[in-house]
Amino acid sequence: MPARVRSAGRNGFSLIEVMAAVMLLAVSLTLLLQLRNDSISRAMDARNLSIAARLANQLLHRIEAARVSDLFDGYQGDFSDYDLPDFRYVIGIGDGSAFATGAGSSLSESEFAWRRQQQEQSEQDKEDDVATENTRVFLTVAYPSSRSANEENEFVLESLVPTWAVEQDWEAWEELWAGNLPLDVK
């Protein structure tokens, strides 16, 4: 009872009260900083995903214009030409491509069976010399993750592209579309 009177008389905080307040402050500041770091890493991931999508689309447009030479199933490269060497790509060709879903994820059983069947059909078509009008192309762009330096995320783009453009078959193009040629420069 006398101690309480003394404390009230001094009108101050005890050491334990100050330590508790500082501790609360430290915890809340730590949480806020973690939140900040988390938002930055999310922004970084969003930016990288956006770049990956843009690069994949650019690459697809180049394939559509027959500007990617010697294309094959599993064709790989990176985007160092655009100052983005951390962004790498793998191109899968054909319905039965082993690179249909990128390297990071595996096919489901039913999809694997379907792709296997498509692969066999494609091989049979080649044997029978049957040309398909369009070819399915899978573009997987791997980009750095913000979580760790060794981890990568993937963006997969799938599209149908004219077969002559994928195979750079100029004769096939001539056969199909030679009538589209404009006049020469006067």
Binding site: I40, A43, M44, R47, Q58, H61, R62, E64, A65, A66, R67, Y82, D83, P162, A165, L176, W177, G179, N180
Partner: peptide, 22 residues
């Protein structure tokens, strides 16, 4: 964020679909 490039170049190829050209 590594967004440290002020000068940026964007390239794209637009192939006109052949049926449109036709």
């Amino acid at each position: 964020l590594g967004a440290n490039r002020a000068r940026l170049t964007f390239e794209d190829v637009y192939a006109v679909p052949e049926d449109i050209r036709w």
